[in-house]
């Protein structure tokens, strides 16, 4: 079972990410029993068939960096888990996608960062509205993840607003005026 970070603590987790292999068809690929996070294309192709599992909270959908989150707009009310994939940790599209899901589309369910998610970016994921971070299995030891929890609070009072704290510093606090 994988270790994930949820709301600042470690949890065991049995969600699996379905990735289409070369030649697999989104319309016909079988989503087995269990908790699966499926690609947007699979969700769109098999929505009727998968909707009940989504509403039961055992099926989620993940977006790639090239996916427009607005494509999920009508589904967000029934989805309890949406994930955003980071194909490379340096590919920052996921930060904007997460921000749009939360701030623009009003998504309130679980938002999970998956893929090549590294501990030195955990702070940024949280700020952009992810509440669950799922590093690749085996990437970190439990001890390393435990140590990484501290980095979630690297910066205690960030300047700009983001999903976690919408108001920028100048609205949150009264800053000193020079004497």
């Amino acid at each position: 079972m994988a270790e994930i970070i949820r709301n600042g603590a470690l949890h065991a987790d049995d969600w699996e990410v379905l990735r289409l292999a070369e030649g697999q068809d989104a319309a016909t690929v079988e989503v087995e029993h269990g908790r699966w996070i499926v690609p947007l294309a699979v969700w769109q192709a098999q929505r009727e068939h998968l909707a009940a599992r989504a509403e039961a909270g055992v099926l989620g959908v993940w977006l790639a960096g090239s996916d427009d989150p607005a494509q999920l707009a009508d589904d967000l009310v029934r989805l309890q888990l949406v994930a955003v994939d980071f194909p490379k940790f340096a590919d920052g599209r996921g930060y904007s996608i997460a921000t749009l899901l939360r701030a623009r589309l009003g998504y309130g369910g679980e938002l999970r960062a998956i893929g090549n998610v590294l501990r030195d970016q955990f702070f940024f994921y949280l700020r952009c509205g992810f509440d669950v971070i799922q590093p690749q299995p085996g990437k970190y030891s439990a001890a390393q993840l435990q140590a990484a929890l501290a980095s979630l609070a690297d910066f205690s009072e960030p300047y700009q607003g983001a999903v976690d704290r919408a108001e920028p510093l100048f609205r949150r606090v009264r800053r000193e005026v020079r004497a």
């Binding site: 340096a90 920052g92 930060y95 904007s96 970016q121 940024f124 960030p158 300047y159 700009q160 983001a162």
Partner: peptide, 9 residues
């Protein structure tokens, strides 16, 4: 712009 979380990458 300092540590803007959306635009770090």
């Amino acid at each position: 712009s300092t540590f803007h979380p959306e635009f770090a990458f």
